[in-house]
Nucleic acid binder design. Structure first.
Lengths: 223, 223
DNA sequence: GTCTATAGTCGGATAGAC
DNA sequence: GTCTATCCGACTATAGAC
């Protein structure tokens, strides 16, 4: 039996935070319409009325979850992106250094996007938002995707000695990102086609090494 | 005023077919839960009760739409896949012929996946089904994705002179497909990052030529 | 801040006339 | 096969006690 002054939460987290955690999972799995406020409240061990109280509405909770993803993702990628952005700020990079940064970039993205269990819920959330962009898409794009894409394109421009504004640089950056993202976006299809049940650590390393090899080949020969 | 014996449909299509057409669009845009039977019936210019009558339930209509996608996609890709499958059946291919088939393969997939307006609705449908695989996922995978993936991996094995069962062949095939799929799966993000409003014919050709270049570089150097 | 109870709406499916 | 009318369950949001 709890003492009178104890908060009624199950864990130490606030109801607000538990609702956001639940939202990441439940919206990710079922989508905005597929998720009901009852599911969300149950998963968070919170009361149904806590959603309109803390977030105004179901949609408010959805946007709060998008913002949370951006914040956490920024924490994960900050060291890498700062390193790249700092290096690019000081003019053109020596080819070796740029290639090493590029390998670091793809390895880190594979680890975060494909390997991180935290990303499981996030990825579905983000992908659904891309299918039918709403207010949360701007939050995700401006807070996260743009910076990641810019870093990759900047490195590419430096390695290929082309202008950052050359559209072929952007296209190439997207294609390279695509080689990583496919293992996340089409995870079920990829796993089934490989006859795998999951991406274990060892298999992640196979993927990282394959992407590095492709990047090297593309960057060695691209015109 | 229609004669007594005329069917009550607006167009020549049967109610059943109009419902499937509507389902492709509406489920694609809003997802299974996001789409209501009323939306579906309105879009198809059909009666609400026609859905349970023709398909048993909303879910039955959803599965019928998945089957329709598989059938149409098979029509689109049949010439290409038959050409590849036939060529692979007669033992190892000369490198030049295999490369030409590979270019044909990527060009066709870019045209269908990125360029076809028909694919707009389908792609979202398929991607949502990957996020939360249900009964329709098996229909899509077995009827479509497997054959496309197998053709690509078969070509790759032939070009790289590796066993078809070598997992690195499958991984490489997925990575190459990823470079194409990213322009479909992350269409909104890609367009925004490129500052484009749509993938025009001319831009599709840019993408096709870029993918061909990447494929050549990867296949020339891969070990 | 958290709870119960409930209002008000909209969902999918059905019954039965035509 | 197609229609109207309707049932009933599930949904989000709110009111008001504590």
């Amino acid at each position: 039996m709890r003492a009178r002054s104890d908060p009624p939460q199950v864990s130490g987290e606030t109801t607000r935070q538990r609702l956001i955690d639940a939202a990441l999972q439940v919206f990710g799995e079922f989508g905005f319409e597929g998720a009901s406020t009852r599911m969300l409240a149950d998963k968070a061990d919170a009361n149904l009325a806590a959603i309109p109280y803390h977030f105004g509405s179901k949609e408010g909770l959805y946007c709060a979850a998008a913002q949370y993803i951006v914040d956490r993702m920024a924490q994960h990628t900050a060291p890498l992106l700062e390193q790249i952005e700092h290096a690019l700020r000081n003019g053109p990079l020596p080819r070796n250094q740029a290639l090493e940064l590029m390998h670091n970039y793809t390895d880190t993205l594979v680890a975060i996007l494909v390997g991180s269990s935290e990303a499981d819920g996030w990825a579905a959330f983000i992908m659904r938002e891309q299918l039918q962009p709403g207010a949360a898409f701007d939050v995700l794009y401006e807070g996260m995707m743009r910076r990641v894409g810019d870093a990759g394109a900047g490195l590419l421009a430096s390695i290929l000695k082309r202008s950052r504004s050359d559209p072929s640089i952007n296209l190439r950056a997207i294609a390279i990102l695509g080689q990583i993202l496919v293992f996340r976006n089409c995870r079920q299809t990829a796993l089934r086609s490989l006859g795998w049940k999951e991406f274990s650590v060892e298999r992640l390393e196979q993927i990282q090494s394959l992407i590095r090899e492709h990047v090297d080949l593309i960057l060695a020969g691209a015109v």
